[in-house]
Design a protein around this nucleic acid. Structure first.
Lengths: 241, 241
DNA sequence: GGATGTGAAGTAGTTCACAGCC
DNA sequence: GGCTGTGAACTACTTCACATCC
């Protein structure tokens, strides 16, 4: 739905593929930075932790972009992955809550990349409001909200729902929620949850059970971080608590 | 391999199931905290963003723990999930790098739960070493390293490999790497990667393409955050760059 | 009656194996 | 020769549908 890209909308990509593309992109950029010009599926696979076949299947979904016998040209690869992920499109991000986590995100050279542009920062702590972080002056959350596409929620769980409500009312279309709290949003708004403790628990499960990577296998599961929820009939409640 | 739990080692759980159990656990705890005593698969499913059938399949993997016609008893559920995830076992966690991210993690009431115990904090910044954070005095990373099971890497990418090497040498068995950097570890060491920008990119893909949650569906994919790598023959290089 | 637990069916994703092209 | 791209086989996961038991 909504505006479609200029030409050739690729066959829709599978969820696992989508979650791997950013990883491939990072590998490709690393090689470009080191002055390389080509890469093959086996090399990408080793670095990404998946099989060469999986890499080729994923990339085939973006169109025909490799050369038989010679692998992929890094420049082409980078451009097509960027196109598929919508990296050419710029979009605004607002961050609500500038405690340690919010600061870590906006100061990270890694978080706001690939089209993401910081639109504004919000907090309700008078000690924080007015201070400058990452080149933006923190504004009070009860004031006007800047237009943006994505909102990042870095507030305590108890405040997450109220923050989400305000952001949605302000026209936000996607939320990245770092609070371990279910939030309800109207139909059409996407919510992704990120929960560090779940990562730690999964890691511990594997350590306790000797499953997963341990057996000496090279390749492993690789999934999306957090759940992806949105809306039920009236109010979305799909997510965890 | 390694020590096996006391009795009844459940049939090994699937990767998707493992990633959902912590979410169920959080829901269960929330209901217990609100004084409830029972829950059924449909209720869990709505909150977790999965179908009731999926919930029942996942829980069936932990043994027979529900009551036909009456759902699950919250206390039993909590205990069995905890057992499956190894929450009864205490394990030490060291955090290296106490910039904003490291501080956010150790100060979060959400991160170090369920058996995880903070063993020590390390940094190499003289301004940070010696300060007290979350009840621990930050120690210099070039000094002795405490015994622990899991190491959390919150340092810049360029330092990640060196940190991993030291931690592995100190006997760490699992690493949670927040740096967007491939790290090599010896066979038998588990590495999980967490990358916020990938989350943001996946969210944007769905917003751009109208896929995922938007169509009005209630339930959606729900995966593991980050990749799970470890070791190849000589040195592990499975991961991204 | 009502919700679990589970064979059976269906769907999605991965891996194999190789034809095709450079 | 080497590596891509892909039908075919396989494996994993989910969903259906219902027998089972409280």
């Amino acid at each position: 739905m909504g505006a479609v890209t200029t030409r050739l909308r690729a066959r829709k990509l599978s969820e696992p593929t989508i979650s791997r593309l950013p990883i491939y992109q990072r590998i490709v950029e690393g090689w470009i930075a080191r002055g390389q010009t080509r890469i093959d599926s086996r090399q990408i696979g080793e670095l990404a932790g998946v099989t060469a076949t999986t890499v080729r299947r994923d990339l085939a979904g973006l169109g025909t972009l490799g050369t038989r016998g010679a692998g992929y040209e890094l420049g082409v690869l980078s451009a097509r992955i960027a196109e598929a992920l919508g990296h050419d499109r710029h979009y605004g991000v607002v961050v609500v809550g500038l405690g340690n986590l919010g600061r870590a995100l906006v100061n990270s050279s890694n978080f706001l990349i690939r089209g993401a542009q910081l639109s504004a920062l919000y907090d309700n702590d008078p000690h924080v409001v007015g201070s400058e972080i990452a080149g933006h002056v923190v504004e009070p959350f009860d004031g006007p909200i800047a237009a943006a596409t994505v909102g990042v929620i870095c507030v305590p769980s108890a405040a997450a729902q109220a923050v989400a409500d305000r952001l949605v009312a302000a026209g936000i279309r996607g939320l990245l929620n770092f609070a371990p709290q279910v939030i309800s949003v109207p139909l059409g708004t996407a919510v992704h949850y990120v929960d560090f403790s779940i990562e730690l628990q999964i890691l511990m499960y594997h350590l306790n059970n000797g499953t997963g990577p341990l057996g000496g296998g090279v390749l492993h599961s690789l999934g999306i971080a957090a759940s992806n929820a949105s809306s039920m009939s009236k109010n979305a409640e799909a997510s965890w608590h």
